[in-house]
């Protein structure tokens, strides 16, 4: 409040000065400009230090031969696009790209559908709804290291609780090699990531649903639109802006998922769950070829950026409409 008052007072001074003496007015305006910049300074410093510097550093690093030696000597010879060529030509690159796409699409579709169903479910008033909704947030509250370790244990082929249960109720004839078969591991990792992403989807979609006025449904029910029709013609159109936020943010979050995969499979078996994020980690912190790690992470950033642009355009169109 005080800042607004001060600013208003100052601009009033300014208008009165402008008519009177020009040199003083210019000085005042210069002072105003300086004040504006001072207000901006903390935010700018923060952005430059914590966003600008790492990005610039990551981009330059991706053009350098930045390895173990660099840390001691400080020398990082310039190699141009050599790192990019090397990672793209690597036999693993296409695998990681496909895995990243499958992992992202699978996770988003699963999280969104389950999240939406749960959000719709919790719109109904029933006993303990609040408690249950709070419990749904649990995956979010657990440290990822802990939850991935527990999942790894639950998905164990021989003695994991998941296989034991499925075998006991005769759903499957033989144990599923969740984490030990290259054909199943990616599915297992996606399932765990869906479990992890549901709270985010439910929370945002639920609050979106709360914003839809109840009168719309009342009016529609008079016209005979209930159930699926009410969802199709009232809920979905009104929810669309929220849906686009959830989906685009979800994609950006999912593209960079690292800890869950490292905790469950470490990118294996036989690179079946290696994504761009895990391979970047591997280049940098296992092989200590930080230049190549930076190159992969830059490719990942560009892909994320493309989705962020889609998000911004969707938002703008929503405003234009």
């Amino acid at each position: 409040m005080t800042t607004i008052d001060a600013a208003a007072g100052r601009s009033r001074d300014l208008t009165s000065l402008r008519g009177a003496q020009r040199p003083e007015g210019r000085r005042a305006r210069r002072r105003l400009g300086l004040t504006q910049w001072l207000f901006l300074l903390p935010a700018l410093a923060y952005i430059v230090l914590f966003f600008g510097f790492p990005i610039v550093k990551n981009i330059t690093m991706s053009f350098q031969d930045y390895g173990t030696r660099t840390f001691f000597t400080g020398e990082a010879p310039w190699v141009g696009i050599g790192n990019y060529l090397e990672v793209i030509r690597s036999s693993l690159f296409s695998t990681t790209l496909i895995n990243t796409a499958l992992f992202t699409i699978g996770s988003i579709v699963g999280q969104f559908i389950l999240g939406l169903l749960l959000a719709l479910f919790f719109r109904r008033r029933f006993p303990l709804a609040g408690v249950l909704r709070a419990l749904l947030l649990l995956p979010w509250l657990l440290p990822l290291i802990a939850s991935s370790a527990v999942w790894k244990w639950m998905l164990d082929q021989d003695s994991g609780v998941v296989n034991q249960t499925l075998l006991a109720i005769h759903v499957i004839p033989a144990p599923i090699p969740w984490l030990s078969s290259p054909d199943v591991a990616l599915v297992a990792v996606i399932i765990v990531n869906i479990w992890l992403g549901i709270p985010f989807n439910v929370t945002i979609l639920y609050s979106g649903l709360q914003d839809i006025p109840g009168e719309l449904y009342e009016a529609a029910s008079l016209d005979g639109a209930t159930g699926w029709k009410a969802f199709r013609y009232i809920t979905w159109p009104n929810l669309r802006p929220v849906v686009s936020v959830v989906l685009v943010l979800g994609v950006v979050y999912t593209l960079k998922v690292l800890d869950i995969i490292l905790g469950l499979t470490g990118g294996g078996p036989a690179n079946a769950t290696q994504t761009l994020a895990t391979s970047s980690y591997h280049y940098s912190f296992v092989d200590f070829t930080f230049g190549q790690g930076a190159a992969v992470s830059n490719i990942l950033i560009v892909i994320s950026l493309a989705f962020s642009i889609v998000y911004l355009r969707l938002n703008r169109r929503a405003v234009d409409e």
């Binding site: 790894k152 082929q157 090699p177 984490l179 030990s180 078969s181 499979t265 294996g268």
Partner: peptide, 10 residues
């Protein structure tokens, strides 16, 4: 042969 668990790769 089944003498080694398939899970040993993890």
């Amino acid at each position: 042969d089944g003498s080694i668990s398939k899970a040993s790769i993890n």
